[in-house]
Design a protein around this nucleic acid. Structure first.
Length: 469
RNA sequence: GGUCCCGUGGUCUAGCGGUUAGGACGUCGCCCUUUCAAGGCGGAGAUACGAGUUCGAUUCUCGUCGGGACUACCA
């Protein structure tokens, strides 16, 4: 008769953790944290055919990455914590067997045909006409008992079927609130009958609407990335992921869209969870992620970015300067890209010119349009202007010593060159941009030059000059 | 087919009988500008439909339409 709030996330390891499951986990976690309760994790692996330990590991990793710490359940190192274990259903066979005996002794089960499977007798267990319950999200639900058919609770091989195992486990783990996907809403009456038949107290239920793809259909692999692991791989931040997913069906108020995990953990309530299914909007996720990147700061950025940079370096064959010796150099890049990327994985391609050394890739379109004047009427004149600009820039920068190779002197020297040439700013800066960054679209130019090696910059300008002719 | 559930702009939502129906993403336009962004300002855009109840419905009831879930020795 404890009033302790205990909730659980109970995934089945038949696949990775997808965003729908992640949101269910987030709501369970937030509910527990907001009400001073416990959040537990249980692995529903009774389907021996499709469950794998690898999937279990990946699910645990994804949850940990999201920052959803659980009070009880299996841990990443293969053990577990909590007093209500084991937390893997395949290790709870004894309990199921014992509880099954209770139903058998009460005459509430009968064999399925002439197999060794057993079916639960709903009518004998529940004489009343209707089965009712109050769902914390969906409200009062009434179902005619005759709409509920007898169902298998034990397979021929002796293992329990879902409906039986969840009820036994939730009751024995003293779960107070069952918060899960609404694909279980229709199954809840069955489970309520089971609860009473086994003499358990019936918990509160809260069902969560599904998450849909942009075509209005249930989110699936067809819609691209759906696994939490995949989003992690693309460079989404766990904080952004939690924030965005929490927004799919819940809002702290009518105005706030950005909130920390801690705010969720303090303010989350079930009575404001939406009943309608939410469509997953990748564009909004990108925006949320960018907001987090913009506020994370240079140091945190470099830490988070590093694995993605290494991956890009491997693919592009870049030699990365020693991160401990050149920490400031890497951190300086944050200001150059933080407003230009949605994900961490997008940073390296935008900053490629810092890492490609003598092998800077020149974007073909940029070379044609900017260095060679494009195909228009002014092509020849523009190409000539580009040549003049590059020569002036080369001279201006060459005149700077290594000691002056910082933003202010560089900017002053270039501004001075521009003033002398009296060119349209665009015709002056774009050739230099292409020469140094390899592309007519890039992060801030002067700041980039200041971060690049002096000789390398001069070499690149020289190379661009050759491309003009 | 049966049962249950859902229905505010393109998307996520606020609203809980009386509002010029609010915010965010996206979108469009303008400003800023050394490219791209970021930022600022502004615009378009919603209560699925039809009956009730009520002095008054986005809000309560019913029906229609549309969508979803369940109906497995999957969870």
């Amino acid at each position: 008769m404890s009033d302790q709030i205990r909730v659980r996330f109970a995934p089945s390891p038949t696949g990775y953790l997808h965003v729908g499951g992640a949101r269910t986990a987030i709501y369970n976690w937030a509910f527990a944290r907001a009400h001073g309760g416990k959040f537990l994790l249980r692995i529903e692996d009774t389907d021996a055919q499709r469950s794998t330990p690898e999937n279990t590991q990946q699910i645990l990793r994804s949850l940990a990455w999201l920052g959803l710490d659980w009070d009880e359940g299996p841990t990443l190192d293969g053990s577990s914590r909590g007093d209500f274990g084991p937390y893997l259903q395949t290790e709870r066979a004894e309990l199921y067997e014992r509880e099954f005996k209770k139903l058998q002794d009460a005459g509430l089960v009968y064999p399925e045909g002439d197999s060794a499977a057993w079916r639960f007798d709903v009518r004998r267990a529940w004489p009343e006409r209707t089965i009712e319950f109050d769902d914390l999200v969906f409200g009062h639900i009434v179902v005619e008992r005759d709409q509920v058919e007898d169902f298998i609770i034990k397979r021929s091989d002796g293992s329990p079927i879902y409906h039986f195992a969840v009820v036994v486990d939730d009751a024995n783990m003293l779960i107070s609130h069952v918060i899960r996907g609404d694909d279980h809403l229709s199954n809840t009456p069955k489970q309520i009958v089971l609860y009473r038949a086994l003499g358990y107290r019936i918990p509160e239920f809260a069902h969560l609407s599904m998450i849909l793809g942009d075509d209005g259909k249930r989110l699936s692999k067809r819609h691209g990335a759906t696994s939490v692991e995949a989003y992690r791989g693309e460079g989404y931040l766990p904080e952004a992921m939690v924030n965005y997913l929490a927004l799919l069906g819940w809002a702290p108020d009518g105005k706030t869209t950005l909130f920390a995990r801690e705010t969720l953990a303090a303010k989350f309530k079930l009575d404001h969870v939406s009943k309608n299914p939410a469509t997953f909007d990748a564009k909004k996720l990108n925006w949320v992620n960018q907001q987090y990147i913009k506020q994370m700061g240079a140091s945190a950025f470099v830490d988070a970015w590093w694995p993605y940079l290494i991956k890009a370096a491997d693919a592009e064959d870049w030699q990365l300067p020693d991160p401990s010796a050149r920490r400031e150099w890497y951190e300086a890049m944050y200001a150059l890209v933080c407003e230009r990327i949605d994900t961490l994985a997008e940073a390296a391609p935008k900053l490629a010119y810092f890492f490609s050394g003598d092998h800077l890739a020149m974007d073909e379109r940029s070379v044609q349009k900017v260095l060679r004047g494009g195909g228009g009427d002014n092509a020849a004149a523009n190409a000539a202007a580009a040549k003049n600009a590059l020569e002036a820039q080369k001279a201006a920068l060459a005149a700077l010593g290594s000691a002056d190779w910082t933003l202010e002197p560089i900017t002053a020297a270039l501004d001075d060159a521009l003033a002398k040439l009296a060119l349209k700013p665009k015709l002056f800066w774009q050739p230099l941009r292409v020469a140094v960054c390899g592309n007519m679209v890039s992060p801030p130019l002067n700041e980039s030059i200041a971060l690049l090696d002096r000789v390398l910059v001069l070499t690149r300008i020289e190379r661009a000059l050759q491309l003009v002719d």
